[in-house]
């Protein structure tokens, strides 16, 4: 419990609650049940993309193509649906698209040894281009009701997709904590050389991380398409950067090896909530980006100071530990 209170998840949750309370001072509508669920509902796409990005960042990598992957998967979903495919087939096609897109990144990074930022920047262009080539540049509209329907489902007053996303977060959290190969993501990011020496399949782990990023991006595409009801050509544009920001906010460090799915999800919720808060406060939406940027910078700046202090403490502890060990000889 004490550990949790000192964690980044706690910090960001606290900030989020403060933000909601502050907004509530000016507009108490935010405390309504519907407002809260709406904020959750609006954050789902980013939450899912961020969860995928998280695996990549665990390994000390980066994937800036996830937004484009979501867009591409959404286009495949919309196109196949309008071709009359049954919804299960269309969703499967979208998911496979995401996985394939992630695997292309994985091949370039693990086998061709292209630096992750370069590889995924390249595929960002490729996937965005493909989106437009497939659709001819026009939006995909008139989607069948079957895909829009789930967005209206509610259980206990809470939208189906919120439940679904919570389930995904829970599964991911359980896996990263308890399933041993999932710990490899942390190990590779923490000490890649050591991981290799100790027999961890480093390349396979990296491969899996980028593939998972693609898979989650596709999952996000399904939720996104269902919620919006159409696919625009700039669908999920810029979400790659928001997903990275969400992870950093939630304590998933770009230096690898640190973070939790809960942190990544709360980070993403935070990024979206800022937008909703500003609406409740009556601030024009144009200030969204500025707020997101300032918050991200503030959090990493605070984190830098916390880490510096912790590092000093750790160093002192280690030196004291050594001294006490050596004390044993006299």
């Amino acid at each position: 419990m004490k550990k949790f209170l000192r964690s980044r998840e706690a910090l960001i949750t606290g900030l989020l609650i403060l933000l909601i309370l502050f907004t509530g001072l000016f507009n108490s509508n935010i405390f309504k049940f519907n407002s809260i669920t709406e904020i959750f509902n609006a954050s789902l796409t980013l939450v899912l993309i961020s969860l995928g990005e998280m695996f990549v960042i665990f390994t000390r990598g980066i994937d800036v193509s996830v937004g484009a992957t979501t867009g591409l998967a959404a286009v495949i979903l919309g196109t196949t649906l309008n071709l009359g495919w049954p919804i299960e087939w269309a969703i499967s096609a979208a998911i496979v698209t995401g996985i394939l897109a992630g695997m292309v990144n994985a091949v370039g990074i693990t086998f061709l040894r292209v630096p992750p930022i370069i590889m995924t920047l390249g595929t960002l262009g490729i996937y965005r281009g493909l989106m437009r080539i497939i659709t001819g540049g026009s939006w995909i509209e008139n989607l069948p009701q079957s895909i829009k329907e789930p967005n209206l489902w509610k259980f206990a007053g809470i939208p189906f997709y919120v439940w679904l996303t919570l389930l995904v977060i829970a599964i991911t959290a359980w896996i990263t904590l308890k399933y041993k190969p999932a710990r490899y993501f942390y190990a590779v990011g923490d000490n890649e050389q050591g991981a290799y020496i100790l027999g961890i399949p480093v390349r396979l782990t990296l491969f899996a991380a980028y593939t998972l990023a693609g898979f989650f991006a596709a999952l996000a595409a399904v939720v996104f398409t269902s919620q919006i009801g159409f696919v625009s050509m700039n669908a999920a544009d810029g979400f790659e950067l928001k997903a990275i920001a969400a992870n950093v906010l939630g304590g998933v460090s770009l230096t690898g090896g640190i973070g939790t799915p809960l942190g990544a999800a709360i980070g993403a919720l935070f990024m979206t909530a800022v937008h909703s808060m500003l609406i409740f406060l009556g601030v024009p939406g144009i200030w969204d980006n500025a707020f997101a940027g300032v918050i991200l910078l503030t959090v990493v700046y605070i984190d830098y100071h916390v880490r510096s202090a912790l590092e000093l403490q750790r160093r002192q502890a280690r030196i004291r530990g050594d001294a006490s060990l050596k004390g044993g000889e006299s």
Partner: peptide, 8 residues
Amino acid sequence: GTLFMFAG
């Protein structure tokens, strides 16, 4: 962060 901030 500054990409968002400057754009904003």
